[in-house]
Design a protein around this nucleic acid. Sequence first.
DNA 1: TATTATGCCATATTGATTTATGGATAAACT
DNA 2: AGTTTATCCATAAATCAATATGGCATAATA
Lengths: 208, 208
Amino acid sequence: MDKLTVKQQRILNFIEKHRVKKTYPPTLKEIGDNFGITIGTVQDHIYALQKKGHLERKKDIARGFVVIKSEEEQYFDKMKAEADLIPLYGNVAAGEPIFANDNIQGYVTMEKSSKGHNIHFALRIKGNSMIDSGIYDGDIVIVRKQDTAEDGEIVIALLDDEATVKTLRNKNIKAYLEASNSKYKSIINKPFQIIGKVIELRREYNVI
Amino acid sequence: MDKLTVKQQRILNFIEKHRVKKTYPPTLKEIGDNFGITIGTVQDHIYALQKKGHLERKKDIARGFVVIKSEEEQYFDKMKAEADLIPLYGNVAAGEPIFANDNIQGYVTMEKSSKGHNIHFALRIKGNSMIDSGIYDGDIVIVRKQDTAEDGEIVIALLDDEATVKTLRNKNIKAYLEASNSKYKSIINKPFQIIGKVIELRREYNVI
DNA sequence: TATTATGCCATATTGATTTATGGATAAACT
DNA sequence: AGTTTATCCATAAATCAATATGGCATAATA
């Protein structure tokens, strides 16, 4: 990967930008037109870019340019491609469906969800019942959908038709939900259903 | 955007995948070869895709396909494109440079950093001095580089050549750093330098 | 000083790619 | 029953685009 001259770099940038914006790379003529030079001259530049290892070319193939990226760029591209956008749901009142489309407040980027899609979602926390576990009112939790969990894990549970965040207590004969705030009582005698398990917490500080 | 037949959808997918993987769209012949059909047949399919509004075509232009995406897809693409990867630094011992390349533990995706690049970074928290503010050992904070901050904001400060997380107290004549844990003393009489301000907190729960 | 790299032009040829036409069949729809 | 739609085929013409060649000038390099 030898260093490029200003002109060569400009031409390389043009090819890549053209590709991204128009969805296909330019022809030699289009490159020439853009820079006010002839096809022959473009050939020279393309040849230089190839020799320096910044560009690949498919022989006899129209627009057959392949811009070579550095390892770092490739790594970044890969990470971005693997990043998922998961929906952020607002906390709902009792009885309302959680996963309703009009309850989506936005989307949150999340690193590679090794497993399939539609498994994760984000939820904005309301209330202080988990404050002793460092989860505050207004925080966002990222949840992996599952209907079981281990003792001590923080789960989203459906209780009286309302979604709540609690620590699961599974040790004894009977599982129950524990609030992480001494002012709140643990819930023992109500039936509940586990919706998912909290795998990440996010808190946004108001940027002034 | 009429519904597509199975065949039409397959051809549209082929065009898009070809474009992404090879960096340029296929020709009519290449499409035909892939599906074992002739150019004439491909013309028919392309025509149908255009009529149904899923594909645009540049006249007389080799590989001039533009796959039309739904508004949702466009929104997702845009968000992904705007997402930044910022470096995650480990906490360093006194005297060592924080922003050293070999102190990068990984990268974290972050939503649109409205302002330019290189302004944000992430830092893994060590210790419990901020526990009363809900920041725990092992948490990751996302920091915006800046050398001043307001009273009450959580900052990364350089103190005795070591980076620490503290709440800035700016009210009085003299600014000082406050630990959010009653077991720790606030730091009043030492000189410090603000590196940046915490704008987001992330905590990953160990996924079993 | 000879050589190499850069940057430019012009032109002809070959090959790739699109476009245009016409025809055929089966299924779905009016 | 007639019409449209979805699939297919074959072939020729037009033109787009890549390739091949040769030549010129300047600056950097061996």
